[in-house]
Design a protein around this nucleic acid. Structure first.
Length: 1133
RNA sequence: GCUCGAGUGGCGGAAUUGGUAGACGCGCUGGAUUCAAAAUCCAGUUCCUCUGGAGUGUGGGUUCGAUUCCCACCUCGAGUACCA
């Protein structure tokens, strides 16, 4: 009986499916064990052999744990919302749900063929309403929560409103927006509902806000930071620009510290932890306020600061303002005649830039804006209102007059303006406000010799002096033009400009010049730094470039060449009260002193930003949100799920709204509590629904919990289920999820933990990153058109290309390698000669052009055209493939065996490199068990390693050998004969090693161990049931099909999957003698068999008398003899 | 640049607390079996100036003894990108 893997594997896969062998019970007396694979996105390309690597490892572990008596949860499902299906839908019109369904079916088919022990009754898909009902549910929970810093956890929003009602927000210690206003309980209670909702949004854990987002025009959506790689989108590689949009955000920053701290409590790979630590980017230091000095007469000629009030786009609007000034309307002209100079007591300016608006007239000292409008339309009113709001926010009062008023009754208008002017208080110069900076080195505060603001900093326009205005504006314009990518790529060029303004050093009271420079990022900290050139290389370089002083505040440190950024062993000098103190003490004291004068305090800063949660896409979870007067409202959880609506097309609408804007049935009826036709929107009971959808990471941030009770329709999961399964014991997946999925999932888990929904603060105890399997591409080496030919007319040119077309050559790798070195072998020389003859035959004079480097060209061919597992190319089949039609006429130069051997090179496995090997073809040729063993055998799980199909004959051969140990031509040959000592020794050695290996996730070495065991037992001609029955259980996690088959042949009627793992007994490994290695000066020279119970002295006696020892020593007397009984003998001398 | 990981035969890799470097497999070579091939089995396979010697990226160190520990450097891979 031969090992017929095809039949065996089909048989057992059917058996497992039919008997639900791997169904996990939520009620069990057994100890639980949860093994999880990272959620796959079912892509259209299907699996290649690299994908199942992690699945095989986790499956082995899951099966092992079942043998060890655990109740194992080992589920699988699909993260099925996502961009590729939607992109495909846009191109073809095919509904993404259909594409997704097809892809999943293919995935499932491939997975089934590898024999995984998944509990398929628990399968989930993020794109089904039954699943995303709970994604929406969690979103609502986040909306209804705020983060209380005092209790250090998320709490229901009701506890916050209760506080507001009682004592306002002054005493609330919450994670919230930066720009909150302070209000009392009375004020809160007096606010209307809309105002209250607005204020609450600043506290909610998911909130709607205007945020600078990464907008990707190519994909028509915003992207999270982790979805951008090198300044372009991760998917598709489209450019990304910064844009301000109203978006849902997740207040993940509230959890920054806990996400960092709890990394120490999980057993995850260090590089992964490092990358999260990095991403969170905690830095401890102080925030320090520098007062801005009023301009001194010598510097500013008495000019009042605060003249520059433009916003970020000032440089673009200035031209327009000039133009408008030159072309005033009639009413504007009349009014300006009366306002200009100081005709009515205060100085007015016209067509002045404030924020991003050009206002008609402004009195800066009184912060009064006068606007003259033409005919007023309804829409214009709305726009004007929002403009007024912005200006009000900047402290300006806006009065409006119509053209008619100005022309008709100018005096009344002027009186009105004079009244407003007298009402408004004198505005203090902006100099009294300070610049806030964050620094990690408050100990070096006496080394500050300048300050640098980001060019985008809002203060820049306010403090720049008239003298410096032109330079500063030119610089801002120049940096604005540089794209984000350029700025990132070029960190060497130091640039900046002086604002002309000065700040006051908090301790020395010395003036500190304020510069702007693009090495300061607007998005980090406060967008401003106190520059300490002696202690920071960037500040140092900047100071050198612009000739700014570099005071040294370090004792005994030379800073003539570069800054001294070291903290340890640094002693502070030239720093008043900090003199002589080491770094840590100086830091504490500096903060203490800053606090004393009210100009600073200790602060911890995080790089982690709140996560943008809106996507302008169709194929994602809809938000359970509708809008009343522009304020978002949650739909009650009992009406979930809010199903994704049907749309005509999957593109943004003509007005630029997200694809859901195309839906005609997408409004919320608050009476019937259902989604209704848009035509019913009446803004009283029927309201518009949210048009954005959720990002890809929403559904994958809690799926591991949903698997515990995936079909529950009443709750996200039952309490019994979550309390039994608790968390994931082993999580296996790729390292590419380090800062995306794994950070967001931890965030949601902590939130759900705070809310008492889950019992564990972290969802996965142990995590392993499996390495990549790379492909081995196949190359042939073409001989290109490296000839210079005298071509004088069109006809010649025609002939020239005909000759080139007529014959193409593919040379061997050796010929190629020599040829590129300029060393032409006989084959190449012949080709050249023939080629020249060919040209001559049509009357052309040709000559080899050795300077042309495309003469010899490696070309990738598909690895499926290699014969068997060899490197021999099947030229005929290759030539039939239209993809390789360019080789159709090529003449392949064969070797002496009449074969063409391709060159191989290791590269990433990808379709475009023609090196993809699919698991299906391996299963057909060698079987799933061979594939499983081979994937493990390739090398350590965590490392990346190249795939080479040829090697699979090794594990396949092993399985055949294993089979023959149990079965011969007459069937099963196992007997009840007693096991020999050697049999037991081999068995128990194997049990010990395999158990240790699995526990250490060292699967490659246990495959070797099996091979050794089978080799030994075959040599011993072992037929003992006792030994062979144990062996088949050991092998079963790795090669489950053959194990089941042999198990049943051994007479068992149940599945092997829960058979108890054999118990290791050390007694079988006890040896009576040891073959000692005898070394001389640490080099092993010969071996010596000695009894185990020999003492050191006995060993020394025998060894010293040994003839080989005498020969080695050649008369010398050893200085020392090291003997470690049971280990080694080393003779020194 | 910074952080992390890795460098061992022709190839994938093994060596558990510092104790026989190259297990196991691929490939290759030779042999057996066969009309022949496949399959299977047996033997060999780190290198060299080969009764000996050298050798785990390079150079140094600690040790009786180093792939393993320490220092410096080189190469490759991954992550990150002016984070104050």
């Amino acid at each position: 009986m031969n090992y017929d893997f095809t039949e065996i594997e089909a048989k057992w896969q059917e058996y497992w499916a039919k008997n639900q062998t791997f169904k996990a019970e939520n009620n069990s007396d057994k100890e639980k064990f949860y093994v999880l694979d990272m959620f796959p996105y079912p892509s259209g390309a299907g699996l290649h052999v690299g994908h199942p690597l992690g699945y095989i490892a986790s499956d082995i572990y899951a099966r092992y744990k079942r043998h060890k008596g655990f109740n194992v949860l080992h589920p699988m499902g699909y993260d099925s919302f996502g961009l590729p299906a939607e992109q495909y839908a846009i191109q073809t019109g095919q509904h993404p749900a259909i594409t997704t369904e097809t892809n999943i079916a293919r995935y499932r088919d491939q997975l089934d063929k590898i024999g995984f022990s998944f509990d398929w009754s628990r399968e989930v898909r993020t794109s089904t309403p039954q699943y995303y009902k709970w994604t929406q549910w969690i979103f609502i929970q986040l909306f209804n929560s705020w983060y209380n810093n005092d209790t250090n956890k998320a709490e229901d929003i009701a506890t916050l409103t209760a506080l507001f009602e009682k004592e306002g927000n002054a005493t609330v210690n919450a994670v919230c927006d930066e720009d909150i206003i302070v209000f009392t309980a009375e004020e809160w209670n007096a606010f209307d509902t809309k105002k209250q909702q607005e204020l609450l949004l600043q506290y909610r854990l998911t909130y709607l806000a205007d945020t600078e987002v990464n907008w990707c025009p190519g994909l028509g959506t915003v992207l999270a930071n982790d979805e951008i790689v090198n300044g372009v989108s991760e998917r598709g590689g489209h450019p990304v620009i910064r844009k301000k949009m109203t978006q849902w955000s997740m207040r993940i920053s509230a959890y920054a510290q806990r996400l960092l701290d709890d990394l120490t409590t999980v057993d995850w790979p260090q590089p992964l932890k490092d990358s999260q630590t990095n991403w969170i980017g905690r830095s401890q230091g102080a925030s320090v306020t520098f007062q801005i000095l009023p301009p001194t007469p010598s510097k500013g000629e008495g000019a009042t600061p605060g003249y520059m009030t433009g916003g970020n786009n000032a440089h673009l609007l200035l031209e327009r303002a000039k133009e408008m000034r030159n072309n005033p309307t009639e009413a504007e002209a009349i009014l300006w005649e009366r306002l200009k100079g100081k005709n009515i007591g205060d100085k007015f300016r016209r067509q002045h830039l404030i924020a991003d608006f050009i206002v008609d007239f402004v009195c800066l000292s009184k912060k009064l804006i006068v606007e003259v409008d033409g005919a007023i339309h309804e829409e214009q009113k709305e726009a004007d209102q929002s403009r007024t709001d912005v200006l009000n926010a900047r402290g300006f009062k806006v009065v409006r007059f119509t053209n008619e008023q100005v022309i008709g009754d100018l005096d009344a208008v002027l009186n009105n303006i004079i009244t407003e002017l007298s009402n408004s208080k004198e505005v203090p110069p902006s100099g009294v406000r300070g610049i806030d900076v964050f620094t990690t080195r408050p100990d070096t505060i006496f080394g500050v010799s300048f300050m640098t603001l980001a060019p985008e900093h809002e203060l820049v326009a306010k403090i720049t002096t008239p003298e410096q205005k032109a330079e500063v504006e030119a610089y801002i314009e120049a940096t604005a033009k540089r794209s984000e990518r350029e700025r990132m790529a070029d960190v060497k060029t130091i640039s900046g400009a002086f604002t002309g303004a000065y700040a006051e050093h908090p301790f020395t009271k010395e003036p500190v010049p304020i510069w702007i420079g693009d090495y300061v990022l607007a998005g980090y900290g406060t967008g401003a730094v106190m520059a300490v050139p002696c202690g920071d290389q960037r500040d140092y370089d900047f100071a050198k470039k612009f000739n700014i002083a570099i005071p040294n505040v370090f004792e005994g440190v030379d800073i003539s060449e570069e800054a001294h950024a070291d903290k340890d062993k640094t002693v502070i000098a030239n720093s008043d009260f900090l003199n002589g103190l080491p770094y840590k003490k100086a830091m504490k004291l500096a903060i203490y002193e800053l606090e004393k004068i009210g100009q600073g305090k200790g602060k911890i800063n995080y790089r982690l930003r709140d996560a943008v949660f809106s996507r302008q896409r169709y194929w994602g979870e809809p938000f359970p949100v509708y809008y009343v007067d522009g304020m978002p409202q949650m739909i009650d959880a009992k009406h979930l799920p809010i199903a994704l609506p049907e749309v005509e097309k999957y593109l943004p609408t003509e007005t630029g709204e997200p694809p859901l804007g195309n839906a005609t049935v997408w409004a919320w009826d608050t009476v019937s509590n259902q989604v209704v036709d848009n035509s019913k929107i009446n803004n009283t009971t029927v309201w518009p629904l949210e048009l954005n959808t959720m990002p890809g990471w929403a559904g994958s941030s809690f799926y591991f919990n949903r698997y515990m009770d995936p079909n529950n329709t009443e709750a996200i999961f039952s309490e019994e289920a979550i309390n039994y399964w608790q968390d994931v014991d082993l999580y296996i997946g790729g390292s590419e999820h380090a800062t995306g999925h794994l950070l967001y999932a931890r965030f949601w888990q902590k939130f759900l933990f705070d809310k008492g929904v889950v019992p564990k603060n972290e969802f996965a105890k142990k995590l392993i990153n499996q390495g990549m399997i790379t492909g081995t591409s196949a190359f042939v080496y073409g001989f290109g058109p490296g000839f210079s030919v005298n071509v004088s007319n069109k006809e010649d040119l025609q002939k020239y290309s005909e000759v080139l077309e007529m014959k193409k050559y593919v040379i061997s790798k050796e010929s190629y390698e020599n040829a590129v070195k300029g060393d032409y072998d006989i084959v190449v020389k012949n080709i050249i000669t023939n080629r020249i003859k060919d040209f001559a035959s049509v009357g052309l004079v040709a000559e080899l052009d050795s300077s042309f480097d495309g003469t010899f060209l490696p070309v990738r061919v598909d690895v499926k055209y290699l014969i068997g597992t060899t490197d021999v190319l099947d030229i005929e089949r290759l030539k039939e493939d239209p993809l390789f039609s360019f080789l159709k006429k090529a003449e392949f130069k064969l070797n002496s065996d009449d074969e063409y051997i391709v060159g191989r090179e290791v590269e990433k496995m990808s379709k475009s490199k023609y090196n993809v090997v699919s698991p299906d073809s391996i299963c057909v040729g060698y079987g799933a068990d061979s594939l499983r063993l081979y994937e493990m055998f390739l090398g350590p799980l965590e490392q990346s390693k190249p795939w080479n199909t040829a090697g699979i004959t090794g594990t396949h051969g092993f399985l055949k050998k294993l089979w023959r140990l149990y079965v011969d031509d007459n069937g099963i040959k196992v007997t009840d004969t007693e096991a020999s000592k050697d049999n037991l020794k081999t068995l128990h050695k194997t049990i010990k090693k395999v158990e240790e290996d699995i526990e250490n996730f060292s699967f490659n070495t246990s495959v070797s161990t099996f091979m050794i065991a089978v080799n030994e037992l075959s040599a011993q001609k072992c037929t003992s049931r006792e030994v062979l029955e144990a062996l088949v259980i050991l092998v079963s996690p790795y090669a489950p099909h053959i194990a089941e088959e042999l198990w049943s042949k051994l007479g068992h009627t149940n599945s092997i999957s829960t058979a108890p793992f054999p118990k290791f007994e050390a007694s079988h490994l006890v040896e009576s003698s040891k073959e000692y290695p005898v070394s001389f000066n640490g080099k092993m020279r010969f071996k010596l068999e000695l009894p185990m119970d020999f003492t050191k002295d006995q060993i020394e006696e025998v060894v010293m008398a040994h003839e080989k020892t005498i020969q080695q020593l050649a008369g010398r007397t050893p200085k020392k003899v090291i003997i470690v009984p049971g280990k080694i003998i080393n003779i020194v001398g």
